[in-house]
Amino acid sequence: MSTAPTNGSNGQSRGPGHHHDDEFDKGLSHDLPVFARRRMIRLLAGASMVPLVAACSTDDSGGGTASDSSSSGSSASGTSGSDCEVIPTETAGPYPGDGSNGPNVLKESGVVRQDITKSFGTADGVAEGIPLTITLTVVDQSSGCDTPKKGAAVYLWHCDREGRYSLYSDGVTGENYLRGVQEADEKGQVTFTSIFPACYTGRWPHIHFEVYDSLDDATAAQAVAATSQLAFPKDVCDTVYATDGYSQSVQNLARLSLETDGIFSDGYDQQLATMKGSTAQGYTATLTVPV
């Protein structure tokens, strides 16, 4: 049976985005004023553009459906030209593992790796679940999102099938699986081999990531260029959570939506992954990350 993460200390946030990861930090009520301010800013910005709407109106929201087949796809995350915006800043949450709230895994030998399903170093745990390949494409927002950020680095982490975060949650404090760093190739891409995360109490299924300008910055846990989160489409979550080991996620997901989630409720178009795959063959999740 899945359990929600146990928070041993207050979460820390970087940047002007949200200031908590879930209800186990300071609680949703702590962040409601933050959400209200962000919505007000957007409303005011929208009001100032009213005279222009008749002349030029665009809707860059996107979404789709995915069936349980190897060729299925869901959501569109491409960003370019005039639609190019910096990835929304979100909290790193109370379980970052970068030294900002306790353990620092980034300075450990072995953290730079593609397969994050296994722990490294003296730990030997393995995260079980539906296979998931995650590919993020880091691009330069100032160039219109057309220039890949070759040499940038991404630190990525998420909970396991039981909703636990390694290094922090009861039963896995000695593990460091589902955490890793990759350097972007000439296409600006980083790829991780992982498992589909749980839906734990109070949060829509998600993956955390930090972008650094270089691998040296990432492994020194310094000079974070961007902190954000990736969201999963509901249809894929429903399909995955119908498989063995994810039963608690079914109940947790039923109480949530992307529109009511404390992090994604103010907009998630840029953070909703494009999904392909099946429970039999595993899934791929892709997202473009302008920084």
Rank of each mutant, 00 (worst) to 15 (best):
L178Q: 09
L178C: 09
R179Y: 04
R179M: 05
R179Q: 03
R179C: 01
G180V: 13
G180H: 11
Q182H: 03
D185T: 13
D185R: 14
K187Y: 06
G188M: 01
G188Y: 01
Q189S: 07
T191K: 15
F192L: 03
T201Y: 14
R203N: 09
R203V: 15
R203L: 06
P205E: 07
H206W: 07
H208W: 09
F209R: 02
E210R: 15
E210F: 09
E210M: 14
V211A: 10
Y212P: 05
Y212G: 07
Y212S: 05
Y212C: 06
S214D: 06
S214W: 00
L215Q: 12
D217S: 12
A220K: 15
A221I: 01
Q222D: 08
A223G: 03
A223V: 02
V224P: 05
A225V: 10
A225P: 05
A225R: 15
A226M: 11
S228P: 06
Q229M: 15
A231N: 08
F232Y: 15
F232H: 11
F232T: 10
D235S: 13
V236C: 07
C237F: 10
C237V: 04
T239V: 12
T239G: 04
Y241K: 02
A242R: 00
T243E: 01
T243V: 04
D244H: 00
D244T: 11
G245N: 00
G245H: 01
S249H: 03
V250E: 11
Q251L: 10
Q251W: 00
L253R: 11
A254F: 02
L256C: 06
L256A: 08
L256E: 09
L258Q: 06
E259V: 05
E259L: 08
E259F: 11
T260I: 09
T260H: 01
T260F: 02
T260V: 13
D261P: 05
D261W: 00
G262E: 11
S265Y: 00
D266V: 15
